[in-house]
Design a protein around this nucleic acid. Structure first.
Lengths: 396, 396
DNA sequence: GAACTTTCTCCTCTGAGTGGACAAAGAGGG
DNA sequence: CCCTCTTTGTCCACTCAGAGGAGAAAGTTC
């Protein structure tokens, strides 16, 4: 199949495409209710979209008491590629234009191997999805990387945990390989977009998404739009001081949040505790696996291990301490906790909530939900698809 | 004079009014260069604005090598009232439509006396300005209060330092009294608007303004617009923890920034130091004035008093600690320090800078100016005038 | 089968906006 | 002083987006 290259010609068409993306097949009449255009003008724009092939007829809908309506929908052959590069694994997924996941692969990986090796892996994963018949090609791709990005150019800048990626033209390179438009963003921002599109943040305009994985980052959404900051490093909260004179951090300071609580820090602390004989449960797991991960701590806590629970509570306290400051400052309508450590579940959440509600003022916390993300590992790839579709479904 | 009641009829007219506000008198040709409209359309809109009386002809400009242009300008008889209510004083100013201050009064006051008493004072100050011939009436007024505001309604909510104001219909009441449109906002947000309009932040889109006065607050500007948060309490950073297990705060917690550094905290610490004989300089001033203020500390530091300097440095360190976190999170392009304690000047600034540059990552601080506000006590009233003019100069 | 609903199309009308022609007013050179 | 060039401002004809109404098409309900 030839890939679509058409783009909406004006703001109305862009608006219609997004409505069809978010609301599925729709009749002209239903679209008209949402879009504040006369029926005649609406018909003209829909017809033009049909001509471009971005939108296709989708049969007759059931009657609502009168003439049955002719539905239209986004072309079901459109395909987006969503890529979420983490510190230690990659997610690649194919979606249709309505951002439904048609196929999803996760593989372990190490970003520190550099862009060339990682790209090869991503492309072979994409090829695999294509070979399985899910897509003949891609109309657009979104990709998230675990570090700051100069967004307009789609280039990582000074990423601490991904040496070798600084200045690598991710957007340009991937666009060449795939032959389609590409947008690049920070992985946390994509997670925020994902939760906004299909998760817990669907109705929110101003919210935060705190992703606790190998590192810690925060996605910021202001007025429904992702806020990226002046140099693309907004939300980089891993190095905010959580514990004065605390543990030394790779950044050179002491007491950074990331040094006290993150997938890596938790594994380290659990290993120490096991080695010092503080927990038989953790020691057993250490012996069995030759190492400990956040998942081991979660399992131990679930099994009632007090040491594991303490580690989680202490981490939640540090995290809550930092989030409390952000809540006072930003006054969000929602805080979403996500990332690898969400396996720690409600123990973690409870510790964070306690700290935030204690430290922030009532006006800011009064009606503030603090919840776990709803989409788990798919948040990133859905956000990636959303990113590129927002780009493509905007006036040329 | 009859007050203007006209409003721009469309976005073009609003745009033109703002250009004239920010750029002063202008010819049609110059306006056309900035506005991306054909000369014919532009002429039509300018003519309509002339008809409303919002804009008036302003004679001929010098030739630029051809026919001389007919300048137009905002009606020079338009008057805005800017009111900045602080914790311990009020500023009231009159501006023209170009937001130039024509008259400015400052008087001591105590917000805790409640809205009725404060309103009376504000109205008598406004009457005084009017009586001096600066205005025959007001076309709009902006007013700032030292606490969170439900912005759309113009009503303070749960303001900690201003009991009695909770839910008081400031906008409605002032509008009735003055007979003109009124907008209400947090005093810190107005300071940010002021510095954006006429101060150090003129070219910035994303920046923070930290106001250190009786309390501490932060104005947040995102994409050129003030961000107010979900419940209007965004920027309320006074109760972020700066010192773990630090001084008890009125809010019930310990170690809040405001408990360690603010006009009130500084006066308290200086008094303690003086009483304990740590500083002869401060003790002298205490004896002379019967009390100490931030200004005394500034004077003592300027005179070389080591204790005063230490107090300032320590306060700057705490403030810098909190700002460092905000910088990591928000990645602003500029941080402005303002409010009463800016009298402490460069000693304070240096301490803040040191702490921020040490604690935040290079990508966020690399090109980040941290500067004192440029407008001093006029920032608030200019911001107030800007607030109402933004409101009036937007499509009806 | 009649009356009422809903959907969609077609046609006419309005008003925003463009762009070109032209007039007005000045600068500068020979 | 006159001619040419430049800039500014006005007028007018033309295009196109969009609104809104009439009416056809297709169903439902009684």
């Amino acid at each position: 199949m030839r890939r679509m290259t058409a783009r909406p010609a004006n703001a109305h068409q862009a608006r219609l495409l997004r409505l069809l993306r978010d609301g599925g097949p729709n009749s002209r009449a239903q679209l008209g209710d949402q879009v504040d255009l006369s029926r005649s003008k609406l018909a003209v724009e829909v017809d033009r979209l049909l001509e471009t092939g971005l939108v296709v007829a989708d049969g007759l809908a059931a009657s609502r008491g009168g003439r049955r309506s002719h539905n239209v929908r986004l072309n079901p052959e459109l395909r987006f590629l969503g890529v979420d590069i983490g510190a230690t694994s990659v997610d690649v997924a194919v979606t249709n234009a309505e951002l439904e996941i048609l196929g999803h692969i996760n593989q372990p990986m190490d970003v520190r191997e550099g862009p060339v090796a990682v790209f090869e892996q991503v492309l072979s994963m994409a090829a695999k999805l294509r070979a399985s018949g899910l897509a003949e090609g891609f109309d657009g791709a979104g990709i998230g990387v675990p570090g700051p990005v100069r967004f307009p150019e789609g280039v990582p800048v000074a990423p601490p945990i991904m040496p070798g990626w600084d200045g690598f033209p991710v957007r340009e390179a991937l666009s060449q390989e795939l032959g389609c438009p590409v947008m690049v963003d920070n992985d946390v921002n994509l997670m925020a977009l994902g939760e906004q599109h299909a998760g817990v943040a669907r109705t929110q305009h101003d919210f935060l998404v705190v992703k606790i994985g190998t590192g810690i980052g925060c996605g910021i959404v202001v007025g429904g739009e992702v806020y990226r900051g002046t140099t693309g490093s907004a939300g980089d909260i891993g190095h905010i001081q959580a514990v004065p004179e605390g543990r030394p951090c790779a950044c050179g300071n002491r007491g950074c949040l990331e040094a006290h609580f993150s997938g890596a820090a938790l594994a380290r602390d659990a290993t120490e505790a096991a080695q010092q004989g503080q927990s038989a449960e953790l020691a057993n797991r250490l012996a069995a696996n030759g190492g400990l991960s956040a998942a081991d701590v979660a399992a131990a806590a679930a099994a009632g291990d007090a040491t594991a629970l303490d580690l989680i509570r202490e981490g939640g306290r540090s995290t809550g301490q930092v989030i409390a400051g952000l809540v006072s400052f930003f006054n969000p309508g929602l805080v979403v906790i996500g990332g690898g450590v969400t396996g720690l579940g409600h123990n973690l959440l409870a510790a964070i909530r306690t700290q935030v509600y204690r430290q922030s003022l009532p006006l800011a916390t009064g009606n503030l939900p603090i919840v776990l993300g709803e989409l788990g590992p798919t948040a990133g790839v859905i956000g990636a698809a959303r990113l590129i579709s927002d780009h493509l479904f905007s006036p040329a």
